[in-house]
Write a protein that binds this DNA or RNA. Structure first.
Lengths: 208, 208
DNA sequence: TGCTAAGCGGAGGGAGCCTCCGTATAGTAA
DNA sequence: TTACTATACGGAGGCTCCCTCCGCTTAGCA
């Protein structure tokens, strides 16, 4: 969950020097609205694309414009928050799947989750690109997190002999992401291609 | 020179089926304004970035808003026109250089011209990306044109024994473009890197 | 020289972004 | 429970930008 304005201070007060262990209390209503806005933004971006108006997002979230801007002073802050939240969800999905499912099912569930994530980025690639430019760490940190999550479920399946071992998490992510973000690949084709990748992943490498 | 609304018809009339040999007469003032707008847009985009206002561009061009929209009904049409014009300039530069200069100087001059072109794209990469999405042919056609131009000057230098022969136009473009579009590379560093590439290009391949 | 298709230009409607500030309330202390 | 206040809410309104519309102007032609 990303809370750019956490700390509740006025916009003018310096926020850079706060002690990290004491993230300053946030009122329950503020926290709830923050989550509502991110959830609404995800929905509206998916429906209307990344250029959707802030008014529409605030309305969908059921909050006023003023509240919106208190939480996300710049539009880019919102894009970033939605993205961070998506990436965090993927990390969580990896942990949950690993706890609850057998190794192959956990891997498959995570990969489908990742495919959903990647597909959802198609509608606001430009905005995301801008967010990356605005904050270079965002890209590298997220990439790292995703790679770790993928490796987590993949390694478990590999150790159980359920997935081929000549591929790593990064490879897999690089293989699936483009298939999902490419706008010329339709939904049905996308699903078929990912199924094929999964089948390949399940197969032992052919002797060269 | 790109003239999206050439033919002077109403916006509603279909423009896709025109005969290429008879581009329908365009009044001299219209042609002049079209060129003025593209030139102004290049200047304003370079100074203010791709999100510069259309008002600013029209003002720089010395034309009214109405005139602007007669020439470029959508903002994206302008981005496309500027880009096409840039690419055409590169083609022209290749031909001119080949006529006027010795093979190596022609190659070098074209490559510096290409570097300028690529650098100028940094300020409106997002807009360009949008234009490519809007019109997929734009990307492939432009890439092809640039590749041809580069090959034209490169081949001449190679035939004269002034440039190594184990590299082709596409390679060279792919090598230089990222160095120029990368926003983390400063102007001075950029120049040094390109000089180094040029030196490498002049050198015979080392035996492996 | 006069005609007219083509082009010019800017007022103004509409939409979106963001600020400002009066009102409401969660959390706390007594 | 009550009273207090730091924190948060919300929307009117100012600003900017996009684009349309339509009356005025003029290049090019007969």
């Amino acid at each position: 969950m990303s809370v750019p304005n956490a700390g509740g201070g006025e916009t003018k007060s310096p926020a850079g020097t706060c002690e990290p262990e004491e993230p300053r209390h946030m009122r329950a209503d503020a926290k709830r609205n923050n989550e509502l806005i991110i959830e609404a933004a995800r929905k509206v971006f998916a429906g209307q694309g990344g250029s959707a108006s802030i008014e529409a997002i605030a309305k969908e979230a059921g909050v006023g414009i003023g509240t919106f801007y208190r939480h996300f002073p710049k539009r880019i802050n919102l894009v970033e928050a939605v993205y961070r939240d998506d990436v965090d969800s993927l990390s969580q999905l990896a942990s949950e799947s690993a706890e609850q499912l057998d190794p192959w099912d956990a891997l498959e569930r995570w990969l489908w989750g990742f495919a959903d994530y990647a597909r959802s980025k198609r509608t606001f690639l430009n905005e995301l690109h801008e967010a990356f430019e605005n904050n270079p760490d965002l890209r590298s940190n997220s990439r790292e997190k995703i790679s770790v999550s993928c490796s987590q479920v993949l390694a478990r399946a590999q150790e159980a002999g359920m997935a081929r071992s000549d591929i790593n998490g990064d490879d897999l992510v690089q293989l699936i992401a483009p298939v999902c973000t490419n706008t010329t690949i339709g939904g049905e084709q996308n699903t078929r291609l990912i199924r094929m990748i999964l089948d390949g992943l399940k197969t032992l490498p052919s002797p060269s």
